[in-house]
Design a protein around this nucleic acid. Structure first.
Length: 550
RNA sequence: GCGCCUGUAGCUCAGUGGAUAGAGCAUCGGCCUCCGAAGCCGAGGGUCGGAGGUUCAAAUCCUCUCAGGCGCACCA
């Protein structure tokens, strides 16, 4: 959208150089910013180019700006170019520029905002990846909301995205799950049982134990072990919760399959050939320290069991072999110490570790009326994602998680989330669409047909400053998505939408859409259509619904 | 001790090296005879944790420092 403006500036620089007003060769210096002005008095777009040229030109920035502004102002779609502040050039555009944009939004519809900056790049986003030993809790919910929204944003930016859930169905934790189920079974049969620290004691274990007994009674050829039964029950449960949260994965990758397929042994063999494996005190070590880790890491313990890291090296090698250009791992912040050793693996295997991007989701501190709520699967008392969804709704829950950047800690006060339900910003944004729809039905009642997009050209003079202000903001949407994708920060979309709503609602209150003036009515209906389009495109990226009525 | 993250309005948080640092909530005062009041208008509220440095320009980059959170396993 701002491409056209950039060209105008480049032309001006070129002409100035031809005329001997500038000596600098580069027409595109690093750091040149062309952006929509923050304030209306600063015009439609601003550039800092004169300030950047001041060094090579050895002249005050305002001097350079004056010369350039003259040339910019002579461009066709520019009505005015002013020098302001320390040397900004503020560019005022003709109204038609914005009406053209509106037309483009309406013709692109649900594709407005998409781009192709990620074209041809395969990205895998791996998130949630919770142990199948208990229900998803609130922390998983935050990772899920961020991972899913990020995936959607990346897709919108043209990337080829695969969402993956790495299911930890091997090792100590799931063994404990199986044992916990068996103990509940024993208990159901009237035996005395004593649970240890490592056992899962939530009510859900008892439920699974009952189902397990049922399955055993039915018999059949192969009796599932408690571990397998427990994993599949938990996986199903997790899948259901995620579905209710609006998330479906493209792929569920089993940790156990890495063992079954021999990939763990295979990876260790590869490292061994590179001389990066050694034995010490009965254990097998991987020389990660040579590749930037704090210390070497154990792959196979003295007792013969492999570590979690052992399967993770096989997993990451496998991911890279699947041909992804970028691997996004979304982890809880308490795993940050783990990043160095995974990066070490990449380097050890001769892979480019810049392909790996780890996003840390900072802690969600769960509070109830200001008091911390103790969480922990083993203690059996925790607040699940499901419970929070039931209380505040999936939409509000997702929006809430996407209202801050992921590397900032988040206080989630249940009492507050509930009490704020009616004034949560999510409703403020959703209300845009509901309101637009409501106005449309009002127009229909009045016998006014929805004008066709093609009428826009003839309606240009019906757009005043208030309308242009809204369109200008609609124009920023593409940039927001691009940046959100590049920085991998989906929360930017959330803030953009809150700003959009913050412009639209006041506009509505000041201006009647359906009036006696046919032209004005048509122009405003089309504007609202575009607002509705952008609002719902944005909410879709967040995975938040857009109800027609609320 | 070492490492990662965070310190911005009373609270929760945005903020591309740019112009007078912004929202929401909370507080106070107004607005429904009129397309939805889940809304709108207005007011108050700031040493951007602190100190140096780089720069025409620093909340933003660098160094140091203070405070909080989290990690530093032959757990996952």
């Amino acid at each position: 959208m701002k491409q056209g403006v950039k060209e105008i500036i480049e032309t001006a620089v070129y002409e100035a150089r031809e005329a001997g007003e500038l000596t600098t060769d580069e027409s595109s210096l690093p750091g040149i910013v062309v952006e929509q002005s923050k304030k209306e008095e600063f015009g439609d777009f601003s550039t800092n180019i004169a300030m950047l040229l001041t060094k090579s030109e050895r002249r005050p920035p305002r001097d350079i700006a004056e010369k350039l502004a003259e040339r910019i102002a002579s461009s066709e779609s520019v009505t005015k170019a002013e020098v302001a502040g320390p040397g900004f050039i503020n560019i005022f555009l003709d109204r038609s520029f914005w009406v053209d944009l509106l037309e483009r939004i309406l013709s692109c519809k649900e594709l407005y905002g998409t781009s192709s900056i990620g074209k041809g790049k395969k990205v895998q986003v791996e998130f949630v990846s919770a142990n199948p030993t208990g229900p998803l809790h609130i922390g998983h919910g935050r990772g899920a909301a961020v991972g899913d929204a990020l995936s959607r944003v990346l897709k919108a930016a043209g990337y080829d995205v695969t969402k993956e859930f790495y299911i930890n169905d091997a090792g100590r934790q799931v063994y404990n799950l199986g044992e916990s189920i068996k103990m509940r079974v024993d208990e159901l049969e009237g035996k005395e049982v004593e649970f240890s620290e490592n056992h899962y004691r939530g009510d859900y274990i008892t439920d699974i134990a009952k189902e397990y007994c049922e399955a055993l009674k039915k018999g059949g050829g192969s009796v599932p072990t408690a571990v397998e039964f427990g994993i599949s029950a938990m996986k199903k449960w997790i899948e259901e919760d995620l579905k209710e949260f609006g998330i479906e994965f493209d792929n569920w990758f089993s940790e156990k399959s890495l063992d079954d397929d021999g990939l763990v042994v295979d990876t260790i063999e590869e490292l061994k050939k590179k001389g990066l494996i050694y034995e010490k005190e009965g254990a097998t070590w991987f020389k990660t320290e040579e590749y930037g880790d704090d210390k070497d890491r154990v792959l196979i313990k003295a007792d013969g069991e492999r570590t979690y890291f052992a399967s993770d090296i096989a997993y990451h090698r496998d991911k890279m072999r699947r041909g992804f250009d970028t691997l996004v791992n979304i982890w809880g912040a308490d795993h940050h110490g783990y990043e160095a050793r995974v990066r070490a693996l990449f380097r050890a295997l001769g892979l480019d570790d810049s392909a790996l991007k780890v996003i840390f989701i900072q802690l969600v501190a769960l509070l109830r009326g200001g008091e911390p709520v103790a969480m922990g699967k083993r203690s059996g008392e925790f607040v699940t994602l499901k419970q929070v969804m039931d209380e505040v709704g999936a939409d509000a829950c997702r929006f809430f998680f996407l209202m801050r950047k992921s590397d900032a800690q988040l206080d989630f006060d249940l009492k507050l989330a509930k009490s704020q339900a009616s004034e949560n910003p999510v409703y403020y944004v959703q209300y845009c669409n509901a309101r637009v729809n409501s106005i449309f039905s009002h127009a229909v009642e009045k016998g006014i047909a929805m004008p066709d997009d093609s009428e826009l050209a003839g309606l240009a003079d019906k757009f005043g400053p208030e309308e242009i202000r809204l369109i200008r903001h609609l124009g920023r949407f593409e940039e927001v998505i691009e940046r959100s994708a590049r920085e991998m920060e989906p929360h930017r979309v959330t803030f953009y939408l809150m700003e959009l709503a913050g412009l639209f609602h006041p506009y509505y209150n000041r201006n009647r859409v359906v009036t006696d003036d046919t032209g004005t009515t048509a122009a405003r209906l089309l504007l609202l259509k575009a607002v509705g389009t952008v609002a719902s495109n944005g909410l879709r990226l967040l995975g938040v619904s857009t109800p027609e009525k609320m």
